[in-house]
Simulated assay, not measured.
Amino acid sequence: MAQNHAVTVLLYTMSTTMNKPKFQGIIPPMITPLLEEDQIDILGLERLLDHMISGGIHGIFILGTTGESTSLSYRLRHELVRLTCKMVNGRLPVLVGITDTAATESIRLANTAKEEGAAAVVAAPPYYFNLGQPELIEYYEYLIRKLPLPLFLYNMPSHTKIIIEPNTVKTLSNYKEIIGLKDSSANNAYFNNLVHKMKDQPDFSLFVGPEEIMAETVLLGADGGVNGGANMFPKLYTKLYEAAKTGDITRVKELHSVVMQISSQLYSLGHYGSSYLKGIKGALSLMGICSDYMASPLHRFRAEDREKLACNLQRIQERVDQLQLR
């Protein structure tokens, strides 16, 4: 594993107003490399981390939706935190997903994250009871009194059936322990409303999940993307972020078209709601980085779809190579 700390880039800065850590850039939601249902692909994890870090990413988010967090045993979640933090070894910040229906389990995992050197935790609303917004505020207020690390809110209404409404985000942002939000709603109106509402709090980080809209949201004021494709092509996404951040529209269009090719050709095979995740894991396996084993109830692509994936991946890889990303 690479240990060259001299090439480490500034990953987040401290705000001078509320002393909040400010995160920016591309923070991939890392897949969880598995060999079996309850066994981490340790060599694959190491290769994946080095692959993404060498591509210039600005942080790592583990145990999110892309990481199959809800399908993993509690033992495995804690083990993944320990292994990831050890392998990253301070080269960039690690964010740990602690979303759970039991607050006690969220807090236990957050304590492990703190002990292992993670930088922050990320929590979506608990996904069983349909909480009202006042109840949601109370839930996060309870969490932050117990958490040892700064907290990112995670808006994921397709999975939790709860939207963290902009006014709720505004209320919660007044707590110094709550430092940002990741939005995976794919709702541009919602996200633009957030950017507008939070414009007087520049130390509150706003990230978008769907990579298909990352560049435009950064152009409009977002702080970066939590984009699954950066597991495979980290340089493509970091360069797209940089182009959007500097307003280089020509470059944005060029790189964004490849992101859309990835979306249409790697994430849309078969007729599965999980095709996005199957595509990423399958591509990483074909690239020789890690296993494509998926935790139940999901399963990797079968032979026919895997062959299609291999053909599509080759075309995308050729196009990425033509871009000569440096």
Rank of each mutant, 00 (worst) to 15 (best):
P148V: 05
C311T: 15
L181R: 06
H78D: 15
L206V: 01
L43Q: 13
I162Q: 10
N193H: 13
P210Y: 01
K235C: 14
R108F: 14
K114C: 12
V88F: 11
L220G: 08
E304Y: 13
D223N: 15
V259E: 09
I280W: 06
I42P: 07
A2Q: 13
D248H: 08
K20R: 12
L313M: 09
E36F: 03
G225M: 00
E177F: 03
R319T: 15
E216M: 12
T168W: 02
Y276G: 06
Y127C: 12
V9L: 14
L172E: 01
Y293G: 10
T160V: 08
T246F: 05
I144A: 02
L313S: 07
L49Q: 07
M30S: 14
G225E: 01
I213V: 13
E68S: 11
S54W: 10
V169L: 00
I144R: 04
L313Y: 06
G209L: 04
P29I: 03
G282S: 11
A120M: 08
S158R: 11
S173D: 04
V9C: 05
D292Y: 04
M1P: 11
L76S: 00
S73E: 01
A244H: 08
E46S: 14
R302V: 14
S15M: 08
Y140E: 00
G59A: 10
T13G: 06
I137T: 04
K281H: 10
G132D: 10
I31W: 08
S15C: 04
A119K: 09
N231T: 09
H196L: 13
N193I: 01
S54F: 12
E116G: 00
N89V: 11
Y74G: 12
A113K: 04
Y272Q: 11
D248P: 04
S268Y: 10
D100F: 00
M214T: 10
N89Y: 14
F191I: 13
V122D: 00
A113F: 03
L277D: 09
V226S: 13
G279L: 08
M294V: 10
G64V: 09
A102W: 12
V81T: 08
L194Q: 02
S205G: 02
D38M: 08
S173R: 01
Y127I: 02
K253E: 15
S106R: 06
L72V: 06
L95V: 15
I316C: 00
L136S: 09
R300N: 13
K245D: 06
G282P: 05
Y128H: 15
V81N: 06
R91N: 06
Y154F: 00
D292L: 01
S296Y: 14
L194F: 03
Q265Y: 09
M52D: 09
K308T: 14
A230R: 04
S205L: 03
A123S: 11
